[in-house]
Amino acid sequence: MGYPKDILTSRSIIKHGKYALIAPEGLVNNVVPGFENCTISILGSPRLGASFVDYIVTMHEGGKNTEGFCGQEDVESFVYVLEGKVKASAGEQEYVLDGSGYLYCPPGVKMYLENLEAGDSKLFLYKQKHKPLEGRKPWVVSGHADQIEFANYDDMHNVHLKDLLPTDIAFDMNFHILSFDPAASHPFIETHVQEHGAYLLSGEGMYNLDNKWIPVKKGDYIFMGPYVHQAAYAVGREPLAYLYSKDCNRDASL
């Protein structure tokens, strides 16, 4: 980066346990054992107040994780390819994933990643402790978001949703893509027990976080804690779209 060219400023906002906006220009690199020739930044984590961990990973030429990611009996993982092409393995099952490709590994299944590009591949990576349900077990899921049809969100023709994982009750979380046409918005300001980690795939907008309207754009990361007010307006000339996780299908714990 070199010497600063102006007064030091940041768009990032951190409210521990409540919400956060993390702009890409403020990210620093983290060393994560097992990842070779990769640049990694940890985004959401328990230190921020999240129950999960989100990462942005740039796999350079020859980048890989031959030791595997997660695989503990109580931890599930998910990867989404933002750019490039990777080989992603769930145990012995191998998949070639290019842009919009994804892989979910249930608890006890290690995820292996290897860059197949001569240049960089960029990934969104996630892990979370699984909340088991007696008699039900989730399974390996892989696909490409571009091959999934958008559905109208809450009967609105200008807001669209994709579910990337099955809605089966065996899964305690899901990943979605929510897309707002220019000038579209949520139907109301939401307040709910679920928490989210969201990565903005395209566009610009205004996001309501804890009843504060904050400008957001492609490349930003948003953490939304439980019961934090949240809603979005899309602005600009292209859809505001983001990938996000949601805990689901479980009762609240005492």
Rank of each mutant, 00 (worst) to 15 (best):
D98N: 12
K110V: 04
Y102I: 04
M111T: 11
A118I: 10
K87I: 02
G108S: 09
Y95S: 12
V86Q: 08
P107W: 15
E76V: 02
E76L: 09
L97V: 04
N115Y: 05
V75I: 13
G62D: 11
F69D: 08
V109R: 10
S100F: 04
E92H: 13
P107K: 15
V81N: 01
G84L: 05
K137G: 07
Q128W: 15
G91V: 01
G135L: 02
S89T: 01
D74F: 06
G84W: 04
Y104I: 03
Y102C: 04
K137I: 13
N65P: 00
E117V: 03
Y112P: 04
N115F: 02
L123V: 00
E83L: 07
K110F: 14
F124T: 00
G68A: 05
S100W: 05
L123Y: 03
K64E: 13
R136D: 13
L82I: 05
E94H: 14
E67M: 09
Y112K: 12
L97F: 06
K127Y: 15
K131H: 14
F78G: 08
E73A: 08
C105N: 10
E117H: 05
G99E: 15
M111I: 03
G91R: 03
A118R: 15
E117F: 01
E67P: 00
D120T: 10
K127A: 06
E92K: 07
K110Q: 15
V75W: 11
R136S: 12
Y102M: 10
V75M: 10
Y112G: 08
